[in-house]
């Protein structure tokens, strides 16, 4: 073996390079996400053809603003669901932060302080969820079901159910109406959150451990990772995102109400699951969540434009959700089926 003629450093064996070679783009993509992207495109084209008002810049900008809060919380929820947890309390946190932020502005707090307070309130509730789930071992479903009730209850108790108006002279109110390149601040922030989510989930240890915990928490723990801290951080992240969404919603509406964002958690979870993130944990996709959030809001937006009865919207959204989750769960069989068809022919 020492009689090789080449005097240069031996290159890594070809088998090493072959082993480490990146798989093709198609092999790497989440098939459920591809299906959803197709469905979203079909729905988009359908509304574009069905109503001339749909494919206007004004409506698309409006759509982006509507998608914003769902997307912001959806990105954080992707981490929670990928870690095998769930957060049902995000709608209540949105309402709480919206209402209390408005009250703080009325009480004369400066906008900058209110914005910091809004984020801290969201993060605080998220950490409460995370601590009970990760360190006390109570299932997240139960913990966040409880905070869903408590947090909105506190907001209702505090505001006695009244909507609290935000003076249009405050910076927060101006933020709600500000636009840049034709799109609202909410839309831009949502885009930034998507980028942060992408990097965090796919390029950092935190993301790696979130996926690992969803797949096999015990394996990750034995690898020396602080599983409890990572789990609490994921739920803290979704609380923080809900706080941000609450502030942006209050800013846009010009008022904070304890009754806002009813059922918001279901829209968010639907968007995440539609995108291809596994409800069983261990598999998450931020791009999928982006697509899922777009789909749910395109349906809502398009149906409104078509003047379909507003009572029909939840029915259609729910039907799409079931259909898509069905495809999601059967995705493997479907892929296998397609493979068999292509191989036989």
């Amino acid at each position: 073996m020492s009689t090789t003629q080449t005097p240069t450093e031996p290159a890594p064996a070809p088998s090493v390079q072959r082993l480490a070679r990146q798989r093709s783009l198609w092999e790497r993509t989440n098939k459920a996400t591809v299906v959803m992207a197709g469905v979203t495109l079909v729905v988009f084209v359908f509304f574009a053809v069905a109503d001339s008002a749909f494919l206007t810049f004004a409506n698309l900008s409006n759509l982006a603003t509507q998608v914003g809060p769902v997307l912001i919380v959806g990105v954080a929820m992707t981490f929670v669901i990928t870690a095998g947890q769930i957060d049902l309390s995000v709608g209540s946190i949105v309402a709480f932060v919206a209402a209390i932020s408005a009250q703080l502005l009325v009480a004369g707090w400066d906008s900058s302080l209110v914005m910091v307070a809004a984020l801290l309130m969201g993060l605080g509730w998220g950490l409460v969820n995370g601590w009970f789930t990760a360190y006390q071992g109570i299932p997240a479903f139960i913990v966040t079901l409880a905070t869903l009730s408590v947090v909105r209850g506190l907001a209702l108790f505090q505001t006695e159910g009244f909507s609290v108006p935000i003076a249009s002279t405050t910076f927060v109110a101006k933020l709600g109406t500000a636009k840049w390149l034709g799109f609202s601040v909410t839309a831009w922030i949502a885009l930034a959150v998507v980028v942060v989510g992408l990097v965090l989930l796919h390029a950092t240890r935190f993301g790696q451990y979130v996926i690992g915990i969803g797949a096999a928490a015990e394996s990750v723990r034995r690898a020396g990772v602080n599983v409890k801290l990572v789990t609490m951080a994921a739920l803290g992240f979704s609380g923080l995102a809900a706080g941000l969404a609450g502030l942006l919603i209050a800013a846009r509406l010009g008022s904070g109400s304890a009754n806002s964002a009813q059922g918001f958690e279901l829209t968010v979870i639907a968007a995440v699951v539609l995108g291809g993130t596994s409800l069983l944990g261990g598999r998450g996709t931020i791009v999928g969540t982006l697509i899922g959030a777009l789909l749910t809001q395109i349906i809502a937006n398009g149906l409104t434009l078509l003047s379909v009865s507003p009572y029909l919207t939840p029915i259609i959204t729910g039907t799409v959700l079931v259909l898509v989750v069905w495809i999601n769960l059967r995705g493997r069989d479907l892929a296998w089926f397609v493979q068999r068809l292509t191989r036989r022919s």
């Binding site: 480490a20 240890r205 790696q208 996926i211 690992g212 969803g214 797949a215 096999a216 015990e218 394996s219 990750v220 034995r222 690898a223 020396g224 990772v225 261990g282 598999r283």
Partner: peptide, 18 residues
């Protein structure tokens, strides 16, 4: 075995010390 099914081979080999 203490492996994570949804992570790839390299990620499992380096889990906790990436």
């Amino acid at each position: 075995l203490a492996l994570c099914d949804t992570l790839d081979v390299a990620s499992n080999l380096f889990l906790g010390r990436e």
